[in-house]
Design a protein around this nucleic acid. Structure first.
Length: 571
DNA sequence: TTTGGAAGCCAC
DNA sequence: AAACGTGGCTTCCAAA
């Protein structure tokens, strides 16, 4: 049962049930308490309603503010985005207003840009102002129903409608989970974080000065160079190294490691600590952690491959040392589940390579692979990653020859994707997420297309003929990886949606189990200790469900590394 | 003064 | 060992 819903911006709204036959004739409710009405209906249907709305980001935070959790939705903006991309129109405006405008032959208005959430915000009590970009004289509910029906039709016309429908469902479920995770927050011990910082950097400095350890290092670095050098400045460092007779081509750590000079260890240590201080130091703690929670602002589908991005806070780059501060509440525990070797397993499943699928039927697929590489697991791993990332330099070439011989269909799968990319074509994930088309600039460089006439600047600067080749290969690496990474991302979404659903079946006598963190192929739950074991069962069942939903009967396994821990650093 | 690219390092 | 994909974020630094 699908129900279209719009808010009136004052806490109320309108809903209409979308019947399969009488789409326009379903019953209409006008309610003063929208959250209450949705809650009633969720309960009444046992969570089987699918709410159709313009945008989860716009709608769901307010419902969370009423402690309401909904089961399923159809996010019109996210689905529109997927459909546009499918037809080579990646990145065009996707809000309800834009979809409606295209449907009526009008010019689509640009999407409203999302404000960068600065730190932890309280959930809004009311629904967000209308961000749909519909013209003011258009009825929101009518437009929503119209666009939704059109999306359903466009999905039905695709070559694999049920796959794409699954993609739309899990993308939408992901949007729900993202809001819920932002609401719950990652349990974060500011005192532990502060202790880690103090231990590494010295006591917290006052007023934006360098912490003591960094200041000491900077001083010793200058002393070694025999001149005042700001170690944060690559330009000054290059000059300084030249000045002491050790010219370097860059100041990257791996380049400096080759230099035999007493300043190098000091500098490497400085870089490491300076990074910690700048990215996850006291300022970050003040901004992003409050009341014992870190609330990442996830951007669902924010990466072309369908991985999530974040807006501020850097939730997807929490360094290992800082994870010591992620500690479960008393009587609660963290359950961290990591899908090991996800991408090579995905390749095994999508390519139908029987040999690779057999390897992926084991817990460590690099072990059977190693047999083809003289028993060298490390070389097997590099070979696998080279195949998926398009690495050709280093030792990759001979390893890839072996891969082509032993796993011909898997290699053909990624090689085909690479060729498509080099030729400017689109590639798709298993469920139909589609990569962006090449840019106009790319077509100009690779195909020699005419530059767009713009202010008479018709003549392109003389390009190196090798640029075309280089650009083509670069896009080939992108599409080669896209088919894997995007499918891995959708495995993770299907998995997360299943976990989310299974968790609602658990005993909540000791508290409600929460998804709190998601990072590409890893999901962290925060649950009462009493239900830790049943949470683990949920995770295992969900992983199995994801495999079957995506790939049916396949020998490929997707084993989870699950850790039940107090502290995330111990996972 | 603001802005945006480049460099560098963090995560997967 | 470091020419291998997706990102975010901070600092520096030159240009507007």
């Amino acid at each position: 049962m699908r129900i279209a819903v719009v808010s009136d911006g004052r806490g109320g709204g309108r809903l209409r049930a979308l019947g399969s036959a009488t789409e326009a004739g379903g019953s209409l409710w006008r309610v003063g308490d929208l959250a209450g009405a949705i809650a009633d209906y969720e309960e009444h249907t046992g969570g089987r309603a699918r709410w159709v709305w313009a945008s989860t980001e716009e709608f769901y935070p307010a419902l969370m503010g009423h402690s309401l959790r909904i089961s399923r939705c159809h996010d019109v903006a996210l689905v529109e985005s997927l459909l546009l991309a499918y037809h080579g129109r990646f990145g065009e405006p996707r809000s309800l207003g834009a979809a409606w405008a295209r449907l009526h032959g009008r010019e689509a208005p640009p999407d409203p840009q999302q404000r960068a959430g600065e730190g932890a915000e309280p959930p809004p009590a009311l629904f967000e102002p209308d961000l749909s970009t519909l013209p003011p004289d258009v009825d929101r509910l009518t437009a929503l129903i119209e666009v939704h029906a059109d999306q359903q039709r466009r999905i039905a016309e695709l070559p694999h409608p049920s796959r794409f429908a699954l993609l739309c469902a899990v993308e939408s479920a992901g949007a729900l989970a993202a809001v819920e995770m932002a609401h719950a927050g990652v349990p974060w011990r500011a005192d532990v974080h502060d202790a880690v910082l103090s231990e590494q950097l010295g006591p917290r400095p006052s007023g934006g000065t360098r912490p003591r350890v960094l200041a000491d290092l900077a001083e010793r670095i200058s002393a070694e160079f025999g001149r005042e050098v700001n170690p944060d400045s690559p330009a000054q460092l290059l000059k300084a190294f030249a000045g002491i007779g050790h010219p370097v081509e860059s100041t990257r750590s791996w380049a400096l490691e080759r230099v035999d000079h007493a300043v190098v260890p000091l500098l490497l240590r400085y870089k490491e600590l300076s990074r910690l201080h700048a990215a996850n130091g006291w300022a970050w703690l003040d901004t992003w952690v409050s009341h014992g929670r870190f609330r990442p602002d996830y951007v669902v589908g924010g990466v072309v491959s369908g991985r999530w991005a974040t807006r501020g806070g850097g939730a997807l780059q929490i360094p290992k040392v800082v994870r010591r501060a992620v500690v479960a509440d008393p009587d609660w525990t963290l359950v961290a589940a990591d899908a090991g070797q996800l991408e090579p397993r995905i390749l095994a499943a999508v390519s139908g390579d029987t040999a690779l699928a057999a390897a992926a039927g084991t817990d460590d697929m690099y072990a059977p692979l190693a047999e083809s590489f003289g028993g060298d697991r490390q070389r097997a791993k590099i070979a696998m990653l080279s195949a998926m990332y398009g690495q050709t330099g280093g030792d990759a070439a001979p390893l890839l020859r072996t891969m082509r011989r032993v796993y011909p269909r898997a290699m053909a799968y990624v090689d085909d994707a690479a060729r498509a990319g080099e030729e400017g074509r689109l590639v798709r994930s298993w469920l139909g997420r589609t990569c962006p088309p090449p840019s106009r600039m790319w077509r100009r460089i690779v195909f020699g297309d005419a530059a767009p006439a713009e202010g008479g600047a018709e003549t392109a600067p003389a390009a190196d003929p090798r640029d075309g080749e280089r650009q083509a290969r670069s896009r080939g690496r992108f599409t080669r990886n896209f088919v894997i990474q995007a499918t891995a991302a959708e495995w993770a979404l299907v998995f997360m949606a299943a976990v989310r659903r299974h968790l609602t079946g658990l005993d909540t006598a000791h508290g409600v189990p929460q998804l709190v963190f998601f990072q590409h192929d890893e999901l962290v739950l925060h649950v009462p200790r009493a239900i830790a074991d049943s949470s683990v069962e949920c995770l295992r069942a969900a992983a199995d469900e994801a495999r079957t939903l995506l790939f049916g009967a396949t020998p490929v396994r997707f084993p989870l590394d699950i850790a039940v821990v107090e502290c995330y650093a111990d996972a």
